[in-house]
Amino acid sequence: MYQSSKEFLKALYEDMEQPNQLEEEATPLTTKDVSSSATSHSRPGSKGIPVTSPKKNKLSLRVKLVNIFLLLLVPFVIYFGGKLTNRNYLAVSVMLLIIGMVPFFFAFEDRKPSAKELVLLAVLVGIAVVGRGIFFMLPQFKPMAAIVIISAVSLGAETGFLVGCLSALISNMFFSQGPWTPWQMFAFGMVGFVAGLIFHRRKQVSRLELSLFGFISIFLIYGLIMNPASVIMYTSDVTFGAVITSFVSGAPMDLIHGGSTAIFLFILADPFLKKLERIKQKHDII
């Protein structure tokens, strides 16, 4: 053992230390050819990444009642919200956003999540918040949407929504809270929710599909919410032209955001999902 290691070291450092060593075949081969088995292990799945699906939870009566109540609240809000102030679009939309988010949180509370679920959720949100700092040399490269999508693929639509929502909320708590917070929460939440709906039930997910979805979702979900939001927040009259202009002016930003999300998913979805899968299997969190 020692002998062979010593020789190995000599061979390894051959060009640096004493120039000529006598034996070339100093390599200690005590193990069989493992590289082939390892290769199959390591190849990133061109076939796809396996994902396990959870059991379906039933909502309790309490939550159902809350949801029905909220649903009934919608027309009421639209009617009276418009009358109360001279900024009816803003008032109505903010209230609708809140009504839209509440059921997810109530369903989560109602499920009585286990300690492991809570920790996993918190870790994912934490990663989404901190992720921003890692790519500081590329300021527009924000991995939050990608992490939300990956979480949703692995853990389902509802959890995806929560990860998105909480990531936006907490990220703003660290950077700056503003009138845009509810919109961002809802937008990231919806990105997660839709990703979960599309991909979570599947047995296999290919990373190409995921990164395509990532790119599109930034335009069709995130952009669809955030661009009109700026019109509603900052202008007096929400006109069709203004909304279109907001889409056009927001397009370059969305393009960068969508592109970076796609790149991120293309490279990271694979290993990230595997790591999540391992944690789920090892500690049976489903």
Binding site: E109, P113, L118, V125, I127, V130, I170
Partner: peptide, 23 residues
């Protein structure tokens, strides 16, 4: 109102500085 969610938020606030240091 939201005990589990608020605990998650508290945990995230615990994790963020920890993760940043780790980064």
């Amino acid at each position: 109102i939201l005990p589990a969610s608020s605990l998650v938020i508290s945990m995230v606030f615990r994790f963020v500085p920890k993760f940043s240091r780790q980064v």
